[in-house]
Simulated assay, not measured.
Amino acid sequence: MNKLVLENLTKSYGEVHAVNNISLTVEQGEFLTLLGPSGCGKSTTLAAIAGLDRPTSGVVRFGDHVLFDDMSGRFAPPEKRGFGVVFQSYALWPHLTVERNVSMPLELRRVSRAERTRRVGETLELVGLSGFEKRYPGELSGGQQQRVALARAVVFRPPLLLLDEPLSNLDAQLRQSARVWLKEIQRELGLTAIYVTHDQEEALAMSDRIAVMRAGKIVQLGTPQEIYERPQHPFAATFIGSANLIEGIVEQSARRGDAIVTRLRLADGQHLDGHSAVPMAAGTKAKLAVRGERMRVAEESGANTLDAGFTTASYLGNHYEQKLMLAGQEIRMLVDVPQPERAGKIHIAESDALVFSAE
């Protein structure tokens, strides 16, 4: 099995750790996404895997091959790793036809002309570009150029496919269709793929697992469902799905059945119960994360029902996003019908509220 293993991988620039002691295993045939904002270290991690950037310390291993080990000084250059790479800029040769662009990796590997012709034809058909063989990159749309770049990266059937924000230059509609066929191609060829993006929708739609990165570290690793439904870090909660973070003080925290229920006192004295990963000490500062679609308008008082002030609403197509003031904080909830700008009540189910330490 050709697993990719990163052990304590670090890339430093002076005192700045672009990648900070990351350990990660990617299974064969898996589609893993490195997700995070600009500057979080995701592209630097990808470059270290590709051999385009030499890490400062740690180990990179693929199958039985050690690609980098700072202790032994071993470092395999990119051409020895044999991985397919697709960049944000497609890096096509403008003076070569589509056929020659896609054929180049096979030519460099001294594949026979007949075999090259067969493989290029199969791959162009796979990406939906049959009949475009004699065109030049300048004669193609952005989406077609992206497909040529992908075809060039997979034509030699690499053991690992590395994609650095390959869809970011496409418009919204093209991105939606491109991520569907990209995932289909990865599955059809059985490729192991590592995908870098800052787009949470792409990550949720395409990934088997997502590594959420912040400041050079992985703050959570899990399936899209795990990260969206049960974030383990406030950053993961807000970056995936834009959860509200409500500040408060812990009043009590204890196990109740299978859950640890933690009660917060908000700045205006109201109380809100949620679930936390571990019991929290009374009097400590905490943040409660709740997604806008998990809140609802309430008519009567009750447990986890709060007084709030409804303000402006924005139309988003199939729903509205309404702003509210709760305990001096602005939060957002999703509603089918916007509420008038007035005082009202909202309800948050205990199981939909996740409590984290504010530290």
Rank of each mutant, 00 (worst) to 15 (best):
K11E: 07
H17K: 15
H17G: 00
V19H: 02
L24A: 06
T25I: 11
L32G: 03
L35A: 10
G41F: 07
K42P: 06
T45I: 02
L46I: 08
A50H: 00
A50P: 06
L52S: 03
R54G: 01
T56R: 03
V59W: 00
F62P: 07
F62K: 01
D64A: 12
L67F: 15
D69S: 02
D69C: 06
M71V: 14
P78L: 01
E79G: 02
K80P: 01
V85L: 15
Q88G: 04
S89I: 00
S89Y: 09
W93Y: 15
W93S: 00
H95C: 09
L96D: 00
T97A: 08
N101D: 07
S103W: 00
L106M: 10
R110D: 14
V111F: 09
S112H: 07
S112Q: 08
A114F: 02
E115W: 08
E122M: 13
T123P: 10
L126C: 14
V127N: 08
G128T: 03
Y136G: 01
S141V: 13
G143P: 06
Q146M: 05
A153D: 14
R157P: 00
R157I: 00
P158Y: 13
L160F: 12
L161V: 09
L162Q: 07
L162A: 06
L163T: 14
P166G: 04
Q173D: 11
R179F: 11
R179I: 02
V180C: 08
W181S: 13
W181C: 10
R187K: 15
E188Q: 15
I194M: 09
V196F: 09
H198R: 03
D199H: 11
A205P: 05
A205I: 05
I218W: 05
I218M: 04
V219N: 03
Q220D: 14
L221E: 07
G222R: 05
E226I: 07
I227T: 02
R230H: 12
P231F: 08
P231G: 02
F239I: 03
I240F: 09
L245W: 08
I246T: 07
I246L: 10
S253H: 01
D258T: 13
D258P: 12
I260Y: 01
A267Q: 12
G269P: 10
Q270S: 05
D273M: 07
S276W: 10
V278P: 00
M280F: 03
K285M: 05
K285T: 11
A286R: 01
V290K: 04
V290N: 10
G292L: 02
V297W: 12
A303V: 14
N304S: 03
T305Q: 11
T305V: 15
A308H: 09
G309T: 15
G309E: 15
F310L: 07
T311Y: 01
Y315E: 06
L316G: 05
H319I: 01
H319L: 12
Y320F: 15
E330V: 14
I331E: 03
R342F: 10
R342I: 11
K345Q: 13
H347E: 12
L354Y: 04
L354R: 11
L354F: 12
L354N: 05
E359V: 08
E359T: 12
